[in-house]
């Protein structure tokens, strides 16, 4: 009965029966809900970590999607996994926290937050941050993050492996986020 009422349940039910499109739609539909919960409950994390936790939750939902029993409503299952993964994120990052077992349905879905980099429309400030990185990493950021060049091309041009490129990019963005925060009053 519950299943026909909740469109998410219909989607996951189809997904577990092998419908990949339904599964993609389920994940897309669930993401803003998860994001809203992470934002509401993960207040002690810097916002740039929120999306990592959202992805952890999605991965958790993915790995445990067979544990949803269709005879039971979907939402409690969804919230239980999200809550578990948020607490797990705190545990991994060494912060003890109490997340109350309450219904999350009052939490509004939240949209993806803009990248910290794109938030800074002040180009000079970005350049100033880039100047503090080593030149190679700065070039990676410029090419991939600012000019939107395909990663394969960039890695060919700079002669670094695609995996190395991703690591360099990730570290550089993180370093820039740290530097950016330090600069702010």
């Amino acid at each position: 009965m519950q299943r026909t009422e909740d469109p998410l349940a219909t989607l996951l039910s189809a997904a577990n029966a092998g419908d990949r499109q339904a599964y993609a739609r389920f994940l897309h539909a669930v993401t803003p809900i998860v994001r809203g919960i992470v934002r509401a409950r993960g207040g002690r994390f810097p916002p740039d970590q929120h999306e990592d936790i959202v992805q952890d939750v999605l991965l958790g939902l993915h790995l445990k999607r067979h544990t949803w029993d269709e005879a039971h409503p979907l939402r409690p299952w969804l919230y239980a996994i999200t809550r578990y993964k948020v607490i797990d994120a705190y545990r991994k990052r060494g912060v003890a926290v109490h997340v109350p077992i309450e219904d999350y349905s009052d939490v509004l879905p939240a949209e993806a937050q803009a990248d910290p980099l794109t938030l800074r429309d002040d180009r000079a400030e970005v350049d100033q941050l880039l100047a503090q990185l080593d030149p190679r990493a700065a070039e990676v950021v410029r090419a991939v993050a600012l000019r939107d060049e395909p990663q394969a091309e960039v890695s060919a041009r700079l002669q670094i492996s695609p995996a190395n490129l991703r690591v360099t990019l990730h570290r550089a963005l993180k370093r820039m986020a740290d530097l950016g925060r330090k600069d702010q009053p």
Partner: peptide, 19 residues
Amino acid sequence: MHTDDLIARLAAQPAPKPL
């Protein structure tokens, strides 16, 4: 990884065996 990419990757995987 962007969340949409993650979703695309997850959705491409076969359905799980029911429990």
